[in-house]
Design a protein around this nucleic acid. Structure first.
Lengths: 183, 183
DNA sequence: TAGAACATGTAACGGGTTACATGATTTG
DNA sequence: CAAATCATGTAACCCGTTACATGTTCTA
């Protein structure tokens, strides 16, 4: 009887709650680790979604434990809403990459400033790549039980690799003036 | 004296308006082609931003031509606001890929439904890749004058290639049950 | 015992999305 | 002349972001 379709962010919280009751804090942490690479969410959002889902009876708040941890449990209606969401067509992906706007319009920018930005962002992605690789090793060392986790992590690896590869060919595309590496 | 910082969407419109006055319709088209791959925007947004920028004197509306085309021209204040934006640090990229949520939670989904979604999305990306390749050829045939366009297009190619490569290794990660190709 | 990390929230704003309305021009 | 396409917009909603407030427990 859930007539209002839930959004993807709420749905992902419900997805995690299938593993058992969790607090907002737990959910932020697990979401950051498992879907952070392709689905960002902030603590504020999590608490708001939890509150609104509680109102809609999709989850039930338990008694606060130590440090006010308030565990939320998924309800039967919650499972139904989740099932409905997961079987609906996933929408197209959206990507918003400010750095690429900067690159496109970098004729209006001193060359060294562009190079700075590129260097900074490249480092961010190198770090992310390193993180993903570590996680990949961990998963495989642990015996590889969860193919879905592996599959999404594989996406992260491909994605970061593509970006790094782009950074590498950039200097030759833009001309050495904007090289990201030093002389 | 522009104390309110403009947002990236407005900034990109100003960026395009450096080429000369354009109507909302023109801007939607050019944005779709040149930044659509990493920065989505809708007609509604464009018209709203134009209206608000006109109010803030960053652009000036001209007389409507045929079919009510109303050309907007960037003003001196607009150039200043753009310059300020382009020299500010570009923020981190955000990506939201609903299909990956579906994959992560696909234990709650019949295998054939997942396979359907995967096939559909894979085709979308194959088409995008084909588009990008055509555009790449066009640019190079035309004599390669604009390195920034080339650079952003190169990103699109890398990105789509990464996604396609991910689709290809998916069956082996998820087990043949969810293969995207037929027997 | 002070400061760091934990934990939960609220309020407001901005902007992305969706749905809808309207009229002009072109083409079959 | 009817239908398709071009072109501009408005209104409302939802949701992501940011800033802030508050109290708790751990640890150096």
């Amino acid at each position: 009887m859930t007539d209002r379709r839930i959004n993807a962010t709420a749905a992902s919280l419900l997805g995690f709650l299938h593993q058992g009751p969790m607090s907002g804090w737990d959910l932020v942490a697990i979401a950051q680790q498992q879907i952070g690479g392709f689905w960002s969410l902030t603590p504020s959002q999590v608490y708001r979604e939890l509150a609104s889902m509680a109102k809609a009876k999709l989850v039930e708040a338990g008694e606060p434990g130590r440090r006010d941890r308030r565990p939320y449990a998924i309800s039967e209606e919650g499972r139904a809403a989740f099932r409905e969401w997961v079987s609906s067509e996933p929408g197209p992906e959206t990507i918003r990459f400010p750095l690429l706007l900067t690159v496109l319009f970098s004729a209006h920018l001193p060359a060294d400033q562009l190079a700075d930005s590129l260097r900074t962002h490249r480092e961010v992605h190198m770090n992310r790549m390193a993180q993903y690789k570590m996680r990949w090793e961990e998963l495989h060392a642990a015996g590889e039980t969860e193919p879905h986790l592996t599959a999404t992590l594989a996406f992260g690896l491909k994605y970061e690799q593509a970006i790094l590869s782009w950074f590498e060919e950039l200097p030759s595309l833009l001309g050495r003036a904007n090289a990201t590496d030093s002389p």
